[in-house]
């Protein structure tokens, strides 16, 4: 009998201590439990301030959450040119990643603050973010989108957004989905989030993955395919509770 390979993955969690405000660690919990239930070995590698590049580049999935402004400044000073280049190379090489809110903005070209100051981004995503007025309304509330990519099209994505910045997509990047309820990237053009190669940027808190297990599984599947160079079919799990929580949002908002 052919011996089954035991799959294993390393999730690189960028700045868990600083970049984790709105229950974002739920995404790490979702990814790791869904691997564990399928007997995929999982290591959660915390990449805190001062992390080594060699620890980063071994990761098969990257994750970075949102943060308070002050925390984000501390992170920016830790992201040296070499670190940025390594992350950029991983994203270009199709390493899957999930970047929430502040992290999503950080991957873009720049963030223009309400006072006109411009904070440079990592320039990996073709997006930019602006926060034009000092007292501009934050975009807060439940959100529902229809995903744009085929792998996710069978289901909506639901979550909770809470952001001041308005993000605009360039020509070299697609939205994660089209907003059917809520605000999304900027409250105007109906786009929400961004997909570049296998990297996902989004304003969804909630956290996004537990109630959207199809997105969690897509990230796991892509990570295994990149690591093991073959088509992977994940063992299906019982997601009835996940979709009860998902559908609660749809029903409440009459979707």
């Amino acid at each position: 009998m052919k011996k089954k390979i035991k799959y294993s993955l390393i999730i690189g969690w960028l700045y868990p201590e600083l970049m984790s405000t709105y229950g974002d660690r739920g995404n790490i919990i979702s990814l790791s439990k869904r691997c564990e239930w399928r007997d995929i070995d999982i290591e959660i590698r915390k990449l805190e301030i001062g992390f080594k590049i060699k620890d980063l580049i071994e990761c098969n999935i990257l994750f970075m959450g949102g943060a308070q402004d002050k925390q984000q400044e501390i992170v920016s000073t830790d992201l040296t040119k070499d670190k940025i280049n390594s992350i950029s190379k991983m994203i270009e090489n199709n390493i899957p990643g999930l970047y929430i809110c502040g992290a999503y903005q950080l991957l873009g070209k720049y963030y223009k603050k309400a006072d006109g100051d411009i904070i440079q981004g990592l320039k990996i995503f073709d997006i930019y973010t602006e926060n034009l007025e000092i007292n501009a309304k934050r975009l807060v509330g439940d959100i529902i989108i229809n995903p744009t990519i085929d792998d996710l099209k069978s289901n909506t994505l639901v979550g909770f957004e809470n952001h001041g910045g308005r993000t605009y997509l360039g020509n070299n990047i697609s939205p994660l989905g089209i907003v059917t309820f809520g605000f999304g990237n900027n409250g105007i053009d109906k786009t929400e989030g961004a997909i570049y190669k296998n990297s996902f940027g989004t304003y969804f808190h909630g956290p996004i993955l537990p109630k959207n297990p199809h997105l969690a599984d897509l990230i796991i599947k892509k990570a295994l395919e990149i690591k093991y160079h073959k088509i992977i079919k994940l063992i299906p799990l019982d997601d009835s509770l996940e979709f009860e929580a998902h559908n609660y949002i749809l029903n409440k908002l009459n979707h």
Partner: peptide
């Protein structure tokens, strides 16, 4: 509060 994501913290 409308946002329940805190339960994950």
């Amino acid at each position: 509060g409308r946002d329940i994501s805190w339960i994950w913290d």
